[in-house]
């Protein structure tokens, strides 16, 4: 699906099934608790190191991801670096949204998505201002404008720093653009995100997530950060040499998932890919990690990765691709 089709079809489909108020420009403000059922592992303990399935990497992006070492997070220069605004779509946390209005007429000048400990505030400017010059600095929160399409708020973020689109080093460049569609259905908020990155991706990467309106206030405040000593010396850059990433076949060993699926690429986003790898999938005799499913299944210890991501201990292995 190309970008234009996505932006037309997806909002349309969701609007068809959604029960929304009969007026344009709905109120998005409130504390929205994260619903982490979808992509639970992704939003909890984090994805496997080399799990790029569903990411439309080009060859360069994949090579860069494979060179990434998680130890980079311990570099003194990176300890206090924020994630990009796209982390809202990846992390486990809820969001606080409010609007800022022009005092004289009450018009909304901007929607704000409050900062959290690992990402900056996103300000969605609604006054039609232009995006910055190609030479301008890229603030941590990027630069975002928004517009209403009926009851759907669509925001466009540019000028982000380089970062990640998955919490395993899957890279996003400072040339990436993020488009978010905000759909409110009563007390539920669905956000559909599309990130395009001419540097690392061959097609738009699409991800959705949901939130539940909460009466527990979410405080939109990022935490301070002081760099500590976590091991790597300044100037040392942990990374893997080409073809030396020790996690290359982790998903194959754990779940029998073929390497070509784990390494991602545009084709891994589409249903037809399941047919392509069907004969290559070998059901492992025993599941040992993040097995999911009911307890007491034929999985092994079922050692989770902690947090919401942990599968039920002793669960069954994941179903084979169909």
């Amino acid at each position: 699906m190309n970008r234009a089709m996505f932006h037309r079809i997806v909002p349309g489909c969701i609007l068809l099934v959604a029960s929304v108020p009969g007026f344009a420009q709905i109120d998005l403000s409130g504390s929205w608790a994260s619903i982490n059922h979808e992509d639970s592992l992704e939003r909890g303990g984090g994805p496997y190191t080399v799990d790029y399935a569903g990411i439309p990497f080009n060859d360069n992006g994949r090579a860069r991801a494979l060179s990434y070492s998680q130890s980079q997070l311990s570099m003194p220069e990176r300890i206090c670096a924020f994630y990009t605004p796209f982390h809202m779509m990846l992390g486990p946390f809820g969001i606080k949204i409010w609007n800022e209005t022009e005092p004289l007429n009450g018009r909304t000048v901007a929607w704000k998505i409050g900062a959290w400990e690992d990402r900056d505030t996103t300000t969605i400017w609604m006054d039609g201002r232009a995006h910055p010059s190609q030479y301008a600095p890229h603030p941590k929160g990027g630069f975002t404008t928004g517009e209403w399409d009926g009851e759907v708020l669509t925001s466009t973020t540019t000028d982000m720093p380089a970062g990640y689109i998955r919490r395993n080093g899957s890279p996003s460049s400072d040339k990436a653009t993020m488009i978010l569609h905000f759909f409110r259905h009563g007390d539920l908020l669905t956000v559909a995100g599309v990130i395009e990155d001419p540097v690392n991706l061959s097609e738009p990467y699409i991800i959705t997530r949901s939130y539940q309106l909460s009466t527990n206030p979410i405080t939109p405040a990022a935490a301070p950060c002081i760099v500590g000593d976590e091991g790597p010396q300044e100037g040392v850059v942990p990374h893997f040499l080409p073809d030396k990433n020790p996690f290359m076949d982790e998903l194959t060993k754990l779940y029998g998932i073929p390497r070509e699926a784990a390494l991602g690429g545009a084709k891994t986003m589409y249903p037809d890919f399941r047919k392509e790898i069907k004969d290559k999938f070998v059901l492992p005799a025993k599941c040992t990690l993040n097995c999911g499913g009911p307890a007491g299944g034929r999985g092994g210890a079922g050692a989770g990765r902690g947090g919401a991501a942990a599968g039920a201990p002793g669960g069954a292995p994941p179903p084979p691709p169909r």
Binding site: E102, V109, A110, W125, R129, P139, F143, D159
Partner: peptide, 12 residues
């Protein structure tokens, strides 16, 4: 308020 965002970005 409106100028707030512009403070983040260099004006060109």
């Amino acid at each position: 308020l409106m100028a707030g965002g512009a403070a983040f970005t260099a004006r060109a």
